[in-house]
């Protein structure tokens, strides 16, 4: 359904994305995962035909995104990073406008509006002016706008950003309900969102694809080490090498001013116990020992630096 081949996009001297290739099958949900500035929005804009790539080709349903823009635009629903809303219109007026813009006939438009207002939970506010709605509602209007003409392909740029936890759950449920009948690409910088919603995750880092994998395999690849933060009252002069000598410890790094050390260790070692014993044995005074979750940065470092042998994991 979606075919991206060797795409590069430069903004003047800045290379936003470089040599990106991937494809998405019909009915699949795929996530773009990456930190801010990774190139997610750029890739999506290229897919929508909003702007041309510097190099490479993008195709949706067999149509080139830049050479047959009308055919492509008829087949996609797009939620940009900030929802494109006319603040002076009511929700209803806005959706009527968008529907006509997408070329829906009057009867179909009336029908679709009812359906979409229900799906996005906007029935109660449909006659309110968009400028008076809260952030969460505006985001929903943005999503309603994207799915209004029932396009086979949905491109959602950070659909849950800026929403409160309840709203996030609602939007995720909505996206899940669209799955199967729609091909969906969504972008996010939240690891759990990508793994919860999608069948495949495309990890983008600094304009390049770092990995393409299923959420299961991705977590497996990430699950062979854990990260702990250890704070002691007083440290030894050669604390770092000593810690490293503990079996199972892979990496130690000291925080500059305080007596805090970040310890990475393999998952199968009893590292918490070993560290506690180490501190007690040297009489350092344990203040804190807690496990840290992997940040997205860690994920990228791991995915880009891990050797393939790491892939063999018992899980």
């Amino acid at each position: 359904m979606i075919e991206v081949q060797h795409v590069t996009k430069q903004y003047g001297p800045i290379t936003a994305i470089q040599d990106i290739s991937f494809s998405v099958k019909e009915g699949e949900i795929v996530a773009f995962l990456g930190p801010n500035g990774a190139g997610k929005t750029t890739t999506m804009r290229l897919l929508t035909g909003y702007m041309p790539p510097t190099e490479g080709t993008l195709r949706i349903a067999g149509y080139d995104c830049f050479e047959s823009p009308i055919q492509v635009k008829q087949r996609i629903g797009y939620l940009p990073e900030s929802p494109p809303l006319y603040l002076e219109l009511t929700v209803h007026e806005y959706l009527t406008f968008v529907g006509r813009l997408k070329g829906l006939s009057s009867e179909l438009l009336t029908q679709r509006k009812c359906r979409v207002l229900e799906q996005t939970g906007l029935v109660d506010v449909q006659h309110r002016v968009i400028g008076h709605l809260s952030r969460g509602y505006r985001q929903r209007v943005g999503i309603a706008q994207a799915i209004l003409h029932d396009p086979p392909v949905l491109i959602l740029d950070e659909p849950t950003v800026g929403l409160d936890p309840n709203q996030i759950i609602e939007i995720r449920d909505l996206i899940k309900s669209l799955a199967g009948t729609h091909t969906i690409i969504l972008s996010t910088h939240i690891l759990s969102e990508a793994t919860a919603l999608c069948q495949r995750v495309i990890i983008i880092h600094q304009g390049r694809i770092a990995a393409i994998d299923t959420p299961e395999q991705l977590s497996a690849r990430l699950r062979h080490s854990q990260k702990l933060s250890l704070t002691v009252k007083q440290s030894l002069p050669d604390m770092e090498p000593q810690l490293r000598a503990i079996p199972g410890v892979q990496e130690v790094c000291a925080a500059p001013s305080s007596n805090t050390f970040i310890v990475e260790a393999s998952l199968d070692s009893d590292i918490q116990e070993d560290l506690t014993q180490f501190v007690v044995k040297h009489g350092l005074g344990l203040l804190e020992l807690k496990s840290q979750s992997l940040s997205l940065e860690d994920v990228f470092i791991r995915l880009t630096h891990n050797t393939p042998s790491n892939k063999t994991d018992k899980s």
Partner: peptide, 14 residues
């Protein structure tokens, strides 16, 4: 400014 231009330019119109 409102980024609604993105809506217009990604709609099937010229």
């Amino acid at each position: 400014k409102l980024r609604t231009f993105e809506l217009l330019l990604t709609s099937p119109i010229g």
